[in-house]
Design a protein around this nucleic acid. Sequence first.
DNA 1: GTTAGCACTCTCGGCATGAGAGTGCTAATG
DNA 2: CATTAGCACTCTCATGCCGAGAGTGCTAAC
Lengths: 338, 338
Amino acid sequence: MLTRRRTEILGLVVHQYIDTAAPVSSRALVTRHGLSISTATIRNELAKLEEDGYIAQPHTSAGRVPLDRGYRLFVEELMAEEPVGVDEQRTIEHQFHQAPARLEDWLSLAAHVLSAAVSNVAVITRPSSRAAQLRHVQLVHLHDETVLLVAVMDDGRVQQRIVQLSRSEDQDGLTARASRLNARIADAEAAAVRAVADELADEDDQRLARMAADLIDEHRIAGETYLEGLRSALEQPEFASVERMLDAVRHLQAYELLRALPAPDDLRPGATRVMIGSENNDDWMHEWSVVTSSFGDYNGSLGTIAVLGPTRMRYGYTIPRVRYVASLVTALLHGVNR
Amino acid sequence: MLTRRRTEILGLVVHQYIDTAAPVSSRALVTRHGLSISTATIRNELAKLEEDGYIAQPHTSAGRVPLDRGYRLFVEELMAEEPVGVDEQRTIEHQFHQAPARLEDWLSLAAHVLSAAVSNVAVITRPSSRAAQLRHVQLVHLHDETVLLVAVMDDGRVQQRIVQLSRSEDQDGLTARASRLNARIADAEAAAVRAVADELADEDDQRLARMAADLIDEHRIAGETYLEGLRSALEQPEFASVERMLDAVRHLQAYELLRALPAPDDLRPGATRVMIGSENNDDWMHEWSVVTSSFGDYNGSLGTIAVLGPTRMRYGYTIPRVRYVASLVTALLHGVNR
DNA sequence: GTTAGCACTCTCGGCATGAGAGTGCTAATG
DNA sequence: CATTAGCACTCTCATGCCGAGAGTGCTAAC
């Protein structure tokens, strides 16, 4: 049974624990918040909260620590969001204005900026496109028979591969060859490109078309993942032991994260989702929380942007910032900002 | 004064310390290697080696630990290289055969493979090109007035940026516009492109040319760095304390590494260089060693490939593997393998 | 329902202790 | 004179003990 007062006390416990990273005692609660009830009363309430599974004590003579259920209630009903101030917005946007030229680097930069803003690990994934289409190929002469096949995909990203042709050809010849190819294989999916390839008379054309089809497939399969801010996360007190720290590095460096993050499909842009501790599927994440949002690019496909940190996370601070960076990335990818 | 026997003993000490990560005692030396001299004699020799600065004891009743000078002599004269066996070569090459399509990913993959092979951090940097040239531009229609400007550089890498034109144009129109532009700005450096841009009549052409020039500049400036294997390095006993580990993460994540690595100019492809402990410039690296080699791409420009680890590193094992991967990457970038 | 008081529990840092490891030194030896 | 056996000495490290401190749960009174 959650009375009003009991809920408020839970809020204070969570708040203070997030702040101090130390078990919260009944006395600390009254003194730090100037409560007008005694420590004994608090203790009674704390006992009830513990009974209901919101909090726990690490050992008999310790204060209380929030459990996942406590954090959940906190996030759901008690937390106050700390909006991104104007100055902070400016700071963040400023970092994007010196954005690098390569499209891919934007996401890496975004992960960096976000991680710095919330002092935790930031992960951005751009999952594989469902049905990637080729938009265009281009051939660039490198040396002798060696050419670079550049394939531009319909999401604006680029795949490239070095190819050996059967004989040397100058750049003009290659350009002509490329437009000849484009006439047949542009704006098509891998299967279609492969079908066309079989019909091509010229041996090199055939190889190039097949290669292009391979590139489409690889592009479709290959998602991108950017992870930044390992360092800020590891500086938090929850990792102040060698095993903890090693575990964190081990798991974060392995890219199983992708599975752990909610697919962007069930998360519409602008929304955020919070997964707390054991709500995450993976065992190793039972002491981590994840704040997820999603972004869209000009092609309508979606990506995931997330912050990972210990369950003792400043949710009210993190959530608005994840949302803000997600919206910023969306705007950037739509090109409205430049 | 380094007698023959003394040198041999130093070799044994270094070897064993690399193996066990524990201070080496006189008794351990005789039993582990079946020496025919007594521990007392060893102790005398050890005392001399200590006097000369090759080894030291952590505390009075501990065995000896190699100093940088000891490692240096070991690497220079005592170490036996452990060549990359045929099976191992196959394993490594195999990982490259499933190489991803994107040129950039090759280096990231190489770092990954190398780090796995030597259980330490692998860093690969491709420094900025001195005088980047544009090879080609291409325009891809995204939506409405939004187009993607793709610039292929003379080293085969690609820069791209989203551009808003003044009015919408279909893909055919854009292709024509691109060839018109290429006729003027292909195969030129940034300054030349900018000069041409000023003369262009059409407003959009001008913007695109200027943008292309910017991309060339950015390409010239932007080096790439790939770092892999943090985890394997941190698992080594030297980092078995929270501060050590945090320090390592802090420094490795910051990209000051670039400065620390020898510029590839003074290291010809195929050669390796070893920097031990305090031979490194940065203070924080005084307990790290770096094995560096370099690779060349089809454009003749150079990159650095390195392994970082604790000074207690298996030099004889690491060096051949760094060299091997460097040669593999060079071959790959020249396209001879595909 | 609230609260003062108190016994109880658990952690943590400090300290002493003893075993173990390894050395340096001395004196004896070939 | 190089080598070596023997031994005293030093330092670390794991262990156990102790007391202070923190915080609780319970009881009884309000």
